[in-house]
């Protein structure tokens, strides 16, 4: 076991998968010689050469489209969108091509590819380096969305994504990159796609979240424990398709549910989680389902006070849990 950062987990997963399987390669803007703007692909160019740590033109649709083509041939490309915000010009390739390839060819062709995208606010990145994009992709059958919150899950889920025969949108919270550290085994392992995980057992209130917000929830829970409020925390890990059984189980555990993320509220992912609970665990509920999200403004603004206002903070989370506990 070694303690590594979230971004080291990305880097180690990529390196180990490239060592394990010659068909795995990374492509994207600045992923080669520079090792990525966040340094997620550091050292891959030196170890595997420029063809497997491929610097591409500044061309998101080609990055995704070329990855689709290479995956059709049988390679396992890992394409990087430098920031999730820049994925928009590649949506046609991801949604209409990669996600529909197996279905439209009646299982004849398929795309074993991963699109990695750093998302989320909290890094003073302004409107176009802070966005959460999961809601734009969470109704695309054929695609899976993975969004881990810990180094252990990052490494295990990225490996599982690379080995998957389906296209995966792999969302990495960029604020977590260097903030979050955790123990990771030395030996090879994977974490199953499609499975949520309880990150903290509790009995009073259930928090369902993912990414950076999950860590805020864990901190709030620790503090609330001193007031004898026991918080149960479920990390979704896979955002599409949702692990409905785990959601229902976690909701039923306490009967009081707080749904938490830093994306816009209306039409977001959490509305779907709420619908699952309302459909399948309605009679287990002791309070209305609560959502704590970012407001419905286009994205996190640049100025620090405005960015801070955009993101749910620890105090708000603590208050929301306490209110539910007292309901």
């Amino acid at each position: 076991m070694a303690e590594i950062t979230y971004i080291q987990a990305v880097n180690h997963a990529l390196r180990e998968e490239m060592e394990r399987d010659e068909k795995v390669f990374v492509l994207g803007e600045d992923v080669g010689k520079k090792g990525g703007v966040f340094r997620a692909t550091e050292g891959l160019y030196e170890q595997f050469g420029e063809s497997r740590a491929l610097d591409t033109p500044l061309s998101e649709s080609a990055i995704a489209g070329v990855a689709v083509g290479a995956s059709l041939y049988g390679l396992r490309p890992v394409a990087e969108m430098q920031f999730a915000d820049f994925i928009m010009t590649a949506i046609n390739q991801i949604v209409n091509e990669a996600a529909k390839m197996r279905y439209r060819s009646n299982n004849d062709w398929f795309c074993p590819l991963v699109v990695r995208a750093p998302y989320g606010a909290g890094v003073h990145g302004g409107l176009y380096h802070s966005q959460s994009i999961e809601a734009m992709f969470n109704s695309v059958p054929g695609l899976k969305i993975v969004a881990p919150s810990t180094p252990y899950d990052v490494k295990g889920l990225l490996k599982a994504s690379i080995r998957s025969d389906d296209p995966i949108l792999f969302l990495e919270h960029k604020r977590c990159y260097r903030l979050i550290k955790g123990e990771v085994p030395d030996e090879d392992y994977t974490v199953p796609i499609g499975k949520a995980e309880v990150k903290r057992e509790g009995t009073d209130v259930t928090v369902i979240s993912y990414g950076l917000m999950l860590h805020h929830a864990l901190e709030a829970a620790e503090k609330l424990a001193k007031e004898n409020i026991s918080t149960h925390i479920l990390d979704l890990r896979t955002l599409y398709p949702l692990d409905q059984d785990a959601i229902v189980e976690a909701a039923a555990k306490t009967g009081k549910v707080l749904l938490l993320n830093e994306d816009n509220r209306e039409g977001g992912l959490l509305g779907e989680v709420a619908a699952v609970i309302a459909e399948k665990a309605f009679f287990e509920l002791d309070a209305p389902i609560q959502r704590l999200t970012a407001p419905d403004i286009p994205a996190a603004p640049y100025a620090l006070p405005l960015e801070k206002f955009f993101m749910p903070d620890k105090d708000q989370i603590e208050r929301a849990i306490r209110e539910l506990a007292e309901f």
């Binding site: 489209g65 995956s71 041939y73």
Partner: peptide, 10 residues
């Protein structure tokens, strides 16, 4: 069109 480039690259 990009798919063809990807197949050729592979």
């Amino acid at each position: 069109v990009p798919h063809a480039a990807g197949i050729a690259l592979a």
